[in-house]
């Protein structure tokens, strides 16, 4: 008997004996859209996440206010210096128990999608590994205005699929009971998105 790989591929080829023509994919759907912070803020808030919008100079004071006195996990390359916070730096990697016990986590992001209220993390600068933003119960994520895409196609075009990606649209939720969405299951139960205007 042939090995499974050869046999499955042979079955596929036999099944396609009628030589179906691969159709051209019509790409006439919308590629662009509203990339405004206002739309992103509205859509993120719709998921019952907290949203703040600040100018570049107001970011650090806001973060200091949000995180004051807390134990916050951060990637080693976080680009902001915020006073008054106990930092749990993920270098060397923190054990899961330490992440689980943190009050929250602060990161940046790789991109955001305004019409769907989505932020995307790719493990790049200021984002850390995936577990970092998963185990703490409170995720504070900073989004720069130039990172916001106006559509799903525009966002995907900016992302590198070879990196581990996490698309986040609101706090963890479930619709499993009577198909009714409730927030707060295994992922962070509180998501706080900080939008930073370009100027």
């Amino acid at each position: 008997m042939a090995d499974a790989r050869s046999e499955v591929l042979a079955r596929v080829r036999a099944a396609l004996r009628d030589r179906p023509t691969p159709p051209e994919v019509p790409r006439d759907y919308e590629r662009t859209g509203d990339a405004s912070l206002a739309l992103l803020a509205e859509r993120v808030a719709h998921y019952r996440a907290a949203v703040h919008e600040v100018g570049p100079d107001e970011l650090v004071p806001l973060l200091a206010r949000l995180l004051a006195g807390k134990r916050i996990a951060v990637p080693a390359d976080l680009p902001w210096q915020v006073p008054g916070v106990t930092w749990l730096v993920d270098s060397p990697p923190l054990p899961v128990a330490a992440l689980d016990g943190a009050d929250g986590v602060l990161t940046g992001c790789a991109a955001a999608i305004a019409p769907t209220g989505t932020i995307v993390l790719d493990g790049g600068v200021g984002q850390g590994r995936r577990a970092l933003t998963l185990l703490p119960d409170h995720h504070v994520c900073v989004v720069r205005e130039d990172q916001v895409a106006g559509s799903v196609p525009q966002a995907l075009a900016r992302l590198d699929p070879s990196r581990p990606l996490t698309f986040i649209s609101g706090p963890s939720a479930t619709s499993d009971i009577e198909l009714d969405r409730v927030e707060g299951v295994h992922g962070p139960r509180r998501l706080e998105v900080v939008l930073v205007r370009a100027t």
Partner: peptide
């Protein structure tokens, strides 16, 4: 775009994970 709106009727589902093989130090 098609799947979240068709299944849970959301603009986007809360989490989508994408991974490619293994990434040292992450996962």
């Amino acid at each position: 775009q098609l799947l979240p709106r068709s299944s849970t009727a959301e603009r986007m589902n809360p989490y989508t994970s994408v991974w490619t093989g293994v990434t040292p130090g992450d996962g």
